[in-house]
Write a protein that binds this DNA or RNA. Structure first.
Lengths: 103, 103
DNA sequence: TATCTTCATAAGTCATGACTTATTATAAGC
DNA sequence: GCTTATAATAAGTCATGACTTATGAAGATA
C-alpha cells in the first residue's frame, strides 16, 4: 500500500473525516472526541491511528491524555495530486484551442 | 450518503483512481481501459459507474462504444474542501503569531 | 496504596465493496 | 441475417474495514 493510497483511504470514511475536521478546528484529546461523536472511544482511537499513519494528524502526550492536532504537511500530497489534473486540464484546454485555431 | 462522501469514496480505491487518471490523460472507451488494466471489463464498467456518480467522469456514446472523459467540474468540491483547511490553518497560524506578540 | 481517568489494543461481528463469470442488449461489419 | 465487438447488469464469492465489548497499561488524585 503506497502512501497516496493511505491518504485517500484515510479520508474516505465520513466518521474519520469528521474527526479530522474537528481536530483541524481545535486540538483535542481522545476523550473529548469520543464525547462529541456518536461512536465509542476505541473507534475514535482506531480512526486516529489511521489518520496518523496517513500523516494527517500528530499526537502529543499530556499527562494521561494524548492531544491530537492536525499535521500541517499532511494535506500537501493531496493538493499536489489535485494540481496535476489542474495543469493537465489546462494543457488539454490549450491544446483544444490551438487545434481550433488551425481551422 | 452525501455528495462529498461519494466523491471521497470514489477516489479511495487505487484501481478506480488509476482509471480516473488514465481517462484524465486521454478520453477513451471501456474496452481500451479494460485492455490496459489488470481487471475485467465488468470491473471497469463498475468503477466507471462509481466515478460517474461522483461526477468525476462523463460518458458519451460513439457507435457501439462509450467514450469516457474527465468531468472538469468534478474535482472542484475536493479543491474547495481542501481550501477550507488551507485558510483554517492560516488563521490558526495568524492567531498564534498574534498571541506571541502579546508577550 | 487504592481508585479513577485516559487511551490503546485484542477479539469478534457484520456490512460493504471489489472482484469474478455468465448473460443480455445494442451497434458494426461481413 | 449472422457474427463479432462493445458495454452494462446480474449474481455470487471473498477480503476488508468499521464498529462493538472486554481488557490492560499508564498517569493523576485521594
Amino acid at each position: 500500500m503506497t502512501y497516496e493510497d493511505r491518504l485517500f483511504a484515510a479520508l474516505a470514511d465520513p466518521t474519520r473525516r469528521a474527526i479530522f475536521e474537528r481536530v483541524a478546528g481545535r486540538r483535542q484529546s481522545v476523550a473529548e472526541l469520543a464525547r462529541a461523536m456518536p461512536v465509542s472511544q476505541p473507534a475514535i482511537s482506531q480512526h486516529l491511528k489511521v489518520l496518523k499513519e496517513a500523516r494527517l494528524v500528530r499526537d502529543e502526550p499530556s499527562g494521561a491524555r494524548r492531544i491530537y492536532s492536525i499535521d500541517p504537511e499532511g494535506l500537501g500530497p493531496l493538493r499536489a495530486w489535485l494540481d496535476r489534473f489542474w495543469t493537465e486540464q489546462l494543457a488539454a484546454f490549450k491544446a483544444a484551442v490551438e487545434t481550433a485555431d488551425e481551422s
